[in-house]
């Protein structure tokens, strides 16, 4: 009697373990945890985020992530932004994608957030401490190149005539490295011919007023908007026939700006690949969340030059008018 117990007991125990394992697997299933990622960008409902958001949504869908695209107003204070992010984390966000309104001096904010959850910075890089754990990274276009591209467009259109031209620059949020880079790129590209930059204003809540003031004081022939918001402000002011006849150049991606290209009011524009920015940042973050040992890495997305001729050509229409799900 005892002898067969010797064989049967381990067998029975083994079978019990198998049964338990199967039960656990069946009940628990293979449905892995659904992570929640919050996205915080300034003025979230702005048209400029439409392709970016499309990218986010697609990536979230592909990676089984719950996307929380936080509604925000215009953010120009890093502490406001940090508190929104903190709120999101305390509300259960497992990851953050954010566009920081301030690059210099945001080490503490990045450090305190990345200590808790991985954070993906978009649009602009920031001054952040060394990242050993790979808990934060930046996805953005090559901003210097964008600046140069804008400058090149101006140079191509005017050539040597540029010499006597007055250029007004709406330089975006100059607290961001990205905008600083673009400005630098633009300056470098136009340096050879060296037109006169009559005014250069940084974007804030009062850009429009500043713009009016600056332009009245010293009207420009060419106005450059370095980012979508700057461009839209410029378009609103100068195409509303208030600012006189000027030529507009810049970068942007909203439908409003595309409309003006389509309508022939703006000749050409640099369109950063915001869809990729959204998709990349979200899928990188998803990989990071699903595999904690991996590290986030910086990525660069492309940009393209659109003009009236290539607006509806082939892939461009898919990029410019993303099919929003």
């Amino acid at each position: 009697m005892n002898e067969d117990h010797e064989i049967m007991l381990p067998l029975v125990i083994g079978i019990f373990i198998v049964i338990l394992f199967c039960l656990v697997m069946l009940i628990k299933g293979t449905n892995s945890e659904v992570y929640k990622v919050s996205v915080i960008v300034s003025n979230s409902s702005s048209g400029r985020w439409v392709p970016f958001k499309a990218g986010l949504e697609q990536a979230a869908n592909d990676n089984n992530i719950r996307l929380d695209y936080v509604y925000t107003d215009y953010i120009d204070n890093i502490y406001t932004e940090a508190s929104i992010i903190n709120d999101e984390i305390s509300r259960g966000a497992n990851g953050i994608i954010a566009d920081f309104c301030l690059s210099e001096g945001s080490e503490d904010v990045v450090a305190s957030i990345s200590a808790r959850v991985p954070i993906m910075l978009v649009e602009t890089s920031v001054n952040a401490g060394a990242d050993i754990r790979g808990n934060h990274a930046t996805v953005m276009p090559d901003n210097y190149a964008i600046g140069r591209a804008i400058g090149n467009e101006v140079v191509i259109d005017y050539g040597e005539e540029l010499k006597g031209m007055k250029i007004g620059i709406i330089a975006g949020n100059q607290n961001q490295y990205a905008m600083q880079d673009r400005l630098k790129g633009f300056m470098d590209a136009t340096m050879k011919i060296n037109p006169e930059a009559v005014w250069c204003i940084s974007e804030s809540r009062y850009t429009e007023d500043e713009l009016i003031k600056a332009n009245e004081k010293n009207p420009a022939d060419i106005v450059v908007g370095l980012d979508n918001n700057s461009m839209e402000t410029a378009v609103d002011y100068f195409l509303g026939n208030r600012g006189g006849k000027v030529k507009l150049y810049g970068s942007g991606c909203s439908k409003k700006l595309i409309y003006y290209i389509d309508a022939g009011e703006v000749d050409s524009m640099i369109v950063p690949d915001d869809f990729s920015m959204g998709y990349q940042s979200m899928s990188d973050l998803a990989i990071k969340l699903q595999n904690r040992t991996s590290a986030l890495v910086d990525r660069e997305v492309g940009f393209s030059v659109v003009n009236r001729g290539n607006l509806f050509v082939g892939d461009n229409q898919q990029i410019l008018f993303p099919i929003v799900q």
């Binding site: 029975v12 079978i15 019990f16 198998v18 199967c22 697997m25 069946l26 293979t30």
Partner: peptide, 27 residues
């Protein structure tokens, strides 16, 4: 694949249960 994996577990589960019962009955 997911369904099949689940079913695989179910089959193993049923087999083990049946085996257990068999052992007891055989005993």
């Amino acid at each position: 694949q997911l369904d099949i994996i689940n079913m695989r577990f179910l089959v193993i589960l049923l087999l083990s249960c049946a085996l257990l019962i068999m052992i007891f009955i055989n005993r």
